[in-house]
Design a binder for these strands. Structure first.
Length: 821
DNA sequence: GACCTGCTGCGGCGTG
């Protein structure tokens, strides 16, 4: 370690002058960088990870001079690119860089380039690029799509990808891989560094960043040895009966949450959905009107202006509490708050830890997170989360591979700028993790696709985007094509949103088109913490005014589903067992004991090597309940699979319901489950075939295809400010889907849609593992006279989806409770 | 195509 001091004495001096300590991992990173290595710095937020790479980049030979010297004239171009997944973080990186440059008296220039960069700034950059460029993966691709980009990046020595764990597991990472492959093509000695929080598959994260064939001896992995203490405090009801058996809102716990808010300087209240945030915000105001003015709300559909204001107000101590969704997980790294409250299951240990980390930022300080269960079985989740933290469990982020939509977009990007020669680019693309396995035929398909639209779309000129020049250069010559392409780059596809505005101006945020299709003028809804009356619709704008009525609809957004992570599922199974055998110290598990007694009385509690199937007959029909604890998506797949296999024994129509813990099959005549078990209904044999038979794979693929088509540039989503209506997008994507389905079933984008449906919607891999596990377990079939605590919430879930009944859900649940005695 | 609880993230109308 002594030697590194010789390499960057200025850095040490600067740290000293500030009274900062140089952490061992920082020194290690400086050394590795000076040695010319690439790699990954694995360090938590707030650990000084930025300077672990910022300083060696600035101070090493990549700078014009490590000592003060008169600035050289322009033309040096970009020497380092710093990638951040979030625009808002760019500002912070920029400030860190400026601070370092000034303190060390260097002649680096630094600037930010994102969608927020103004036209004037862009023009300035075009004349003279900064030496350190802070940008996003999307903006990097936009730069690659401009003429002479190879000159811009001619002197590039290093790329740093910040928050790499955030990109991993999304197509944005694939886009990053492609961008890196091109930059390495331009500069074979380019150093690539990632900065990442811990994820379950760290080695893979490194491999994705550097590509699978990066020379081993040029790689370094730097791990910050900072262990954060996290304390999980459940907010418990006085009696377990207070908690509902089913439900997810947790409003019943409101009174217990208020004291936490009261006694803390500042509190973040995390909810799982945007509508839940809206509801909690309103309910808190209802019971604690004094919170008006010192409490705010923050979620992804609220306008950026309002969100910035909230972040700022939290900084300056104006706000005492903010109700939010994961929009505050990341992004602006604000001053830590005193208390964190999590309402309902966060579904994964990593997400929970990240949120906990928002409190107690001082080194050595303990982060405390209050967990609020919203139904009885979530008491077990509390214990599971605590154990998960103790055992250091962190979920994986699975990288996307072979995403042909991202690849064809990239190829058009290259064709838009200076054009490309396929042979050269193929070699680069093959070196990425994502496309390592691409075959020459598949590559040729991509080239055909961008030049002719492929076999079935060749009749349409708009798909002939790229031309092949005489010398074999692939290039876009049409201005319109180039412009449209630049306008639709990136891999994030959003639904068309209606903007919500006050009549006199004042933009509040956006809600999906669908929500408004059910509303007529005069209707009242809650949004952004306000009670609003719809005045009129104007295109994609909803004009509103403040309403005086107390009640209103709460918008629901489509959003993504967050199923229980596999690791949480395993931990839940373990904790149930510990709770039942009373081998634990968790207060939550103690509280839930009466529920186990009831479960045992009415049914059975499965041990680790048992798999429980409950049978129950009601006036609705014949029910079967299964409990794999694998999350909603896997359950949905498994339920359809079993329904299909069971129907081979006897013609039956099933209705299916599920939650994160288990699923239900309901039929109107008896279900031959024993018979089916005898002939191995959980078998892995013919799994793929049976899945394809049982689920509506075409429909699932059709839905995935919309995003794929938009990333691949098959559909144009409109000019900024005048988006194309969703139903138009829907229909054009469907049209193309149908054409491909009929005339070109081997189309790679179409196949990708099927692959994604299987992998991400059915979570086939996890389904397979779950079936394997069940196979090794002993199956216990239990008849029930009354629904068990396990099965009850699933039944409620089914009822809430049953449109035929006119009874309100609440009445039904009451009736059911009476019946159950 | 959605409703049935369901997050987050970026970019965009210019070629010397």
């Amino acid at each position: 370690m002594k030697e590194s001091k010789k390499i960057f004495p200025q850095a040490h001096q600067w740290f000293q002058s500030k009274g900062w300590q140089v952490a061992p991992f920082q020194e290690e990173a400086w050394q590795a960088y000076a040695d010319g290595k690439s790699g990954l710095v694995n360090a938590p937020t707030g650990s000084g990870k930025t300077y672990s790479l910022m300083l060696p980049v600035l101070l090493s030979g990549d700078s014009t001079s490590p000592r003060p010297s008169p600035p050289r004239r322009g033309g040096e171009g970009v020497r380092c690119i710093w990638i951040t997944p979030i625009r808002a973080l760019a500002k912070e990186i920029f400030q860190s860089a400026e601070r370092a440059i000034e303190a060390l008296d260097l002649d680096w220039t630094v600037d930010v380039r994102t969608g927020d960069t103004t036209t004037a700034q862009r023009a300035k950059q075009k004349a003279k690029m900064p030496n350190l460029l802070i940008t996003t993966p999307e903006s990097l691709h936009l730069l690659i799509s401009s003429k002479g980009y190879d000159k811009t990046f001619k002197n590039l020595k290093c790329v740093v990808v910040d928050e790499w764990h955030e990109l991993m597991g999304s197509k944005r990472a694939v886009q990053m891989e492609l961008g890196l492959s091109r930059l390495r093509g331009l500069n074979p000695t380019l150093r690539t560094w990632g900065i990442s929080a811990t994820i379950g598959n760290m080695e893979e994260a490194l491999e994705v960043l550097l590509g699978p064939h990066f020379p081993e001896r040029e790689i370094a992995v730097i791990k910050a040895d900072i262990q954060k203490k996290i304390e999980v405090v459940s907010i418990l009801p006085d009696e377990v009966e207070t908690l509902p058996w089913a439900g997810h809102l947790g409003i019943k716990m409101l009174k217990k949450v208020l004291p936490v808010i009261d006694k803390s300087e500042s509190t973040l209240i995390f909810t799982n959905t945007r509508s839940m945030a809206e509801i909690w915000y309103q309910k808190i105001l209802d019971v604690a009107p004094k919170m008006a003015g010192i409490m705010a709300m923050h979620h992804g559909s609220i306008s950026r202006d309002i969100r910035f204001w909230v972040e700022d107000a939290l900084h300056t101590g104006l706000l005492k509490a903010v109700v939010c969704t994961s929009s505050l997980d990341l992004g602006v790294d604000f001053r830590p708050v005193e208390s964190i409250v999590q309402i309902g299951s966060p579904k994964g240990v990593a997400r929970f830890m990240q949120r906990a980390g928002r409190s107690g930022h001082q080194p050595g300080a303990t982060s405390r997170i209050y967990f609020v269960p919203t139904h009885t079985l979530e008491l077990v989740e509390a214990a599971a989360l605590r154990q998960g933290i103790v055992d250091n469990i962190v979920e994986e982020r699975e990288p996307y591979i072979r995403s042909f939509d991202v690849l064809v977009q990239y190829l058009v990007t290259l064709a838009v700028s200076d054009g490309f020669y396929p042979k050269e680019i193929f070699e680069e693309v093959k070196k990425t993790f994502s496309y390592e396995s691409i075959s020459p035929e598949e590559w040729q398909w991509c080239l055909d696709f961008i030049t002719t639209g492929g076999k079935s779309l060749s009749g349409y000129d708009e798909f002939h985007k790229v031309e092949i020049m005489q010398d074999g250069l692939f290039k876009v010559t049409s201005r319109r094509t180039a412009q449209r392409h630049r306008m639709s780059m990136g891999t994030i596809v959003s639904d068309a949103m209606i903007k919500v505005k006050f009549q006199r101006g004042g933009y509040l945020g956006s809600i999906e088109e669908y929500f408004f299709s059910r509303l007529k003028p005069g209707d009242v809804f809650w949004f952004a913490g306000q009670n609003l009356e719809l005045v009129k619709m104007r295109g994609m704008i909803a004009e509103v005014r403040k309403a005086n009525t107390k009640n209103g609809l709460v918008p629901s957004w489509k959003g993504g589903r967050m199923p229980l992570s596999a690791k949480m599922g395993a931990m839940l199974r373990r904790k149930i067992e510990e709770s039942v055998s009373k081998q634990h110290n968790d207060p939550e598990l103690k509280l839930i004991e009466p529920l186990w007694e009831l479960q045992r009385e009415r049914s059975h509690i499965p041990s680790r090597d048992e798999f429980l199937i409950e049978k129950y007959k009601s006036e609705d029909g014949y029910h079967l309940f299964f409990y794999p604890f694998e999350g909603r998506l896997v359950h949905e797949g498994m339920a359809t699979l079993l329904a299909y296999r069971l129907s081979l024994f006897k013609p039956l129509t099933f209705s299916i319901a599920m939650n994160d813990y288990g699923f239900e099959l309901l039929a109107d005549s008896s279900i031959p489950i024993e018979e089916a078990l005898d002939s191995d209904v959980f078998t892995l044999t013919d799994l793929r075939e049976d899945i394809m038979q049982s689920v509506n794979a075409v429909e699932m693929a059709r839905r995935r295809f919309r995003d794929i088509a938009s990333i691949a540039g098959l559909i144009f989503t409109g000019y900024p400010g005048q988006p194309v209506k969703d139903r138009h997008l829907q229909s054009s994507s469907q049209l193309i889907f149908n054409v491909l389905q009929d005339y070109e079933p081997d189309n790679l984008l179409l196949q990708q849609a099927y692959d994604e449906a299987l992998e991400f919607q059915l979570e086939e891999g996890r389904l397979r593992q779950a079936l394997e596990r069940i196979h090794k377990q002993e199956i216990v079939i239990q008849n029930m006279d009354k629904p068990s605590p396990f099965s009850f919430p699933i039944m409620v879930d089914r009822m809430s989806r049953d449109k035929l009944t006119s009874e309100s859900l609440e009445d039904q649940v009451k009736k059911m409770k009476l019946k159950m005695g």
